[in-house]
Design a protein around this nucleic acid. Structure first.
Lengths: 124, 124
DNA sequence: TTGACGTATGCCTATATGGGAATACGATTG
DNA sequence: CAATCGTATTCCCATATAGGCATACGTCAA
């Protein structure tokens, strides 16, 4: 069973295919990290990343398309906010290697127990 | 400060740049999952993935270059084995979103720190 | 209105990809 | 030795990038 369909010549999956592809680009990762500290307008992201504004806008478009960020129009600026949800896809994929993450396994149990004990869970 | 250097026209980071890029390709992810269940020769991977052997060999090359797999020559076949180490880069990046994450993310992260404190990466 | 601001979009180029096909190459077998 | 197996490599192509630059677009201030 093929993993996905394509007409022809799938040189490389589009960056907007999923979180995996979107996040493969270092600058996009950087932007996400910045947004992790709070929402920010495009210009601010451009300053912080030292990237030209159009470049940032393009990266944000990709991130938007995979749902990693959301926009809110505020006056003439667009404030971007991080949405970690799509990262879950990656996280769960990584989780499938848990067992091979040898040492981790033991420690995992105890920590998990702690978590379950404290568990707050505030929706997502 | 720029994240990385390039002469010109960096269309897209090479797939062999890091685990992020290598793993962005779905078939490569599939191969890794298969190897998670045990080492396997190329032919077997080709069968299981229903990909042509040359295609598999190419993917394996990429995975090899980022250290996600290692080979062992056995007679005329090459047995590939998974090496999760490089996945840590991804894991720790994800960990930086801990606070914004709700569930068991913390667990993995703390264990990760332990790992990094203890052993010094061995793969290459 | 006009102009400035904040952002998005369009056009451009070089690039390396993923897969198909053919073939090269080393190891094994006869 | 030759033939075959298991795998890697090469050549081919269409593709969509990432960034530079210019510009379009909507919002706000005079």
């Amino acid at each position: 069973m093929p993993i996905w369909e394509y007409d022809w010549a799938m040189a490389r999956a589009a960056t907007t295919t999923d979180a995996f592809n979107a996040v493969a680009e270092p600058r996009r990762r950087q932007i996400l990290q910045l947004l992790a500290q709070g929402e920010r307008p495009v210009g601010e992201l451009a300053d912080l990343t030292e990237l030209a504004q159009p470049v940032v806008s393009k990266h944000l478009r990709v991130l938007r398309e995979v749902g990693l960020v959301t926009v809110q129009e505020q006056g003439r600026q667009r404030v971007y906010r991080l949405n970690v949800a799509p990262l879950r896809e990656i996280q769960s994929w990584l989780a499938s290697f848990e067992q091979l993450w040898q040492e981790r396994f033991d420690a995992m149990d105890s920590v998990l127990e702690d978590l379950q004990r404290q568990e707050k869970g505030q929706g997502q």
